[in-house]
Design a protein around this nucleic acid. Sequence first.
DNA 1: TTCTTATATATAAGAAAATTATGTATATAT
DNA 2: ATATATACATAATTTTCTTATATATAAGAA
Lengths: 110, 110
Amino acid sequence: MSNSKLYKGSLTTIILKLLNEHDKMYGYEITQKVKELTKGELKITEGALYPALHKLEAEGLLDVEVAKVDNRLRKYYKLTETGTKETVNKLEELADYIKTMQALVNPKLA
Amino acid sequence: MSNSKLYKGSLTTIILKLLNEHDKMYGYEITQKVKELTKGELKITEGALYPALHKLEAEGLLDVEVAKVDNRLRKYYKLTETGTKETVNKLEELADYIKTMQALVNPKLA
DNA sequence: TTCTTATATATAAGAAAATTATGTATATAT
DNA sequence: ATATATACATAATTTTCTTATATATAAGAA
């Protein structure tokens, strides 16, 4: 993912937000989109991504739809209603996280 | 620590930054300072804190000094030279993390 | 004076999330 | 022919944290 440990715990938020913006995406597409949006700063590895997608599906936050394109398998994921609600929560948590960390790291501005 | 998983991987950064500001601190003091600075938002548990302090000490980022105050044991930690350098890195990593996450979550502003 | 809360540190068992490595398979470019 | 890109998957291990437990002193409340 990155040499920085701070990204630990952020993957779910990233996946949900991307699916919130793009309606439906497949795993490999997510890795490429993240690389593009972060200008190479962040690379989602398969070992992290696929288990995360399966977990979100099992939790009912994502629906899957299998497709065959160019004779290759693709699994398109999209948010369920529950998944959309959870996306809002995750984005709030991210905003809170950033605020809290800035209070710790930049106490003068608090 | 918090119900939010985003804090995973942030503890080292928090410890180093506090020690960078306060010269020397003991474990319990760190938990109280974090609670105070974050207005109760973030609570560092002992199960996370003490192993983290021991690890930073083992890595040579912290020095320890044992003291007895009011007949109770205290272990004061302070940054080594290496620890001070690593603090700069960790703070840069935090700034980068925030920037990257904002690029993902708020692509319109990129 | 007994009980609770606060102060102070420590570790062990388990869970969660990632890394690293490996595996399969097709398509495209050199 | 070979390497790279596309596309998914999982298993072993590591890292980091949670939860629980343990010890001990001090202070305050009932």
